[in-house]
Design a protein around this nucleic acid. Sequence first.
DNA 1: CCTTGACTTCGAGCCCACTCCAGGTGGTAG
DNA 2: CTACCACCTGGAGTGGGCTCGAAGTCAAGG
Lengths: 129, 129
Amino acid sequence: MTITEVSRKYGVTPDTLRYYERIGLIPPVPRTKGGVRDYDAESCGWVELMRCMRSAGVQIEALIKYVELFRQGEETIEARKAILLDQRDQIVERMAEMQRSLDRLNAKIEGYEQGLLKKERQLRREQKP
Amino acid sequence: MTITEVSRKYGVTPDTLRYYERIGLIPPVPRTKGGVRDYDAESCGWVELMRCMRSAGVQIEALIKYVELFRQGEETIEARKAILLDQRDQIVERMAEMQRSLDRLNAKIEGYEQGLLKKERQLRREQKP
DNA sequence: CCTTGACTTCGAGCCCACTCCAGGTGGTAG
DNA sequence: CTACCACCTGGAGTGGGCTCGAAGTCAAGG
């Protein structure tokens, strides 16, 4: 699979795929004789995984660390697991934060729905924009 | 309330508070004779709201727009509501994405928990890092 | 053979959201 | 009166995560 095909498959630019590889977010991709990237299933798997993690806001730093450990072999399994647990906690925490904001947003929308002008004055009066 | 007090209250730096005001993320804060910011309940409310929205990842652009409309008065209520609805959708969408990543992460952790070495080989064999 | 076009690398550039700095001012304490 | 400290402004700098441009290379088609 060429870089363009992979980029289309996962909705990222070829530039981003090269960038990911350069910084070690995914392990080196196999190449053809001529030096052109030729993504196999494993490389695609890494790309997919990293897109998934990145879309959840996982820091690139942690993911690079994970890849490094993975490449070092089996004795790093505990360390890798620790990274995953840590990242999971962070995602859970962020989702909880988002839920709070969502609740607040819904309350505001509710306010706009029934009240409108009236509510606006009330909001101003209550000093709670 | 001084900027330092407010910054402590909401866990942001004074620099960030000045930045927020400068870009219009919060309306102008009242000043003392000498030109020093003197936050009242309303200003604090804005700060609190914006911290809440920002921590959910709401784009600053949208929030600035909201503040602009708010300052224009009651005829902008529909437009403001539209912004809130739009932002809510985006938060919901991002939370769904995070949930997917979380599920995946949990599955990987599960794999590491029961299997460890064995699982590693399996992962390599399955070409699904 | 020559052109075309998709690939390559390396380095620089960009956007967002802050964050920091230099230089200046107000008000209070000694 | 002077010193001090927390505040002020405008503008430059930073870090994360891409994104772009220049210049070069390979393989297929004419």
